[in-house]
Nucleic acid binder design. Structure first.
Length: 236
DNA sequence: CTCAGCTTTCCTGCTT
DNA sequence: GAAGCAGGAAAGCTGA
């Protein structure tokens, strides 16, 4: 579905870049390249004092960086080449395009942008409040819970690499295909190179108690429970 | 500082 | 026998 959204959709007015290019490769190495206000210290209202449609490319870049910093979004999810665009182009992007350009983070970025557009001048705290009042908790993706990590992986085929697959999407039943790869990914996420699937599975079994996962009497197969949210639809 | 929740680590025993 | 699962116990980490 998302494959139908081509890069040219986003980059019609920009250079064609490698989707895997890093932030600095695309936007330059330092803020010296495009000196603007320091959003980290004194511009909480900057993103809302200027309507997103009037943002420059650099503003868009800084907004992304701001969101990554502020909401601890995983910058690795974001294909920055897709965001080498003006604010007007950014505003014209659909939710699907955000998803395509930034995976899981795209959902949050889209939500943040829409709130800035709708609510005009709102403070960072207000944005945070809006995020917190969203259907699903928008939190530190880097330190998200294990079950959220698993859920997000299932919902992100581009990151999944066949590590997890749905057994019965309707019932929330999934299979761990590459257990060691999953453990390695989780270990990387938690900066713990000693993580193993044995330990990870112990943590998954912990979720049986809390209703986040339900027991399935099949090897490497788990099922989301009533207390797990966000796996039902293609949105989290 | 305390506490609770979550995760990690280690372990034994069982099942496939 | 190997791999995986189940679950107890304890410790570590983190945020409220």
């Amino acid at each position: 579905m998302l494959d139908s959204v081509t890069h040219s959709t986003f980059l019609s007015n920009t250079m064609v870049c490698d989707p895997l290019m890093s932030w600095t490769e695309i936007f330059g190495t330092t803020e010296d390249d495009y000196p603007t206000c320091d959003h980290r210290t004194d511009s909480d209202s900057f993103w809302t004092s200027i309507h997103p449609e009037h943002w420059s490319k650099h503003n868009v870049c800084e907004w992304l960086q701001f969101c990554c910093d502020q909401y601890k979004l995983d910058a690795n999810c974001i294909s920055f080449s897709h965001f080498n665009i003006s604010g007007l182009q950014l505003c014209n992007m659909t939710q699907e395009e955000f998803l395509d350009a930034a995976g899981i983070c795209g959902e949050y970025l889209y939500f943040i942008l829409q709130n800035i557009r709708m609510h005009g001048e709102c403070s960072r705290n207000q944005i945070k409040h809006l995020l917190n009042s969203c259907l699903l908790p928008v939190q530190d993706l880097q330190s998200s819970h294990l079950w959220e990590f698993v859920r997000d992986l299932l919902l992100s085929p581009e990151e999944n690499s066949g590590i997890l697959e749905w057994e019965d999407r309707g019932q929330g039943i999934f299979r761990v295909v590459k257990s060691e790869a999953l453990a390695k990914m989780w270990g990387q996420r938690k900066k713990n190179d000693r993580m193993t699937y044995e330990k990870l599975s112990r943590a998954l079994r912990y979720y049986y108690k809390t209703g986040i996962l339900e027991r399935v009497d099949r090897r490497l197969v788990y099922k989301f429970g009533k207390n797990a949210h966000g796996w039902q639809e293609n949105k989290i």
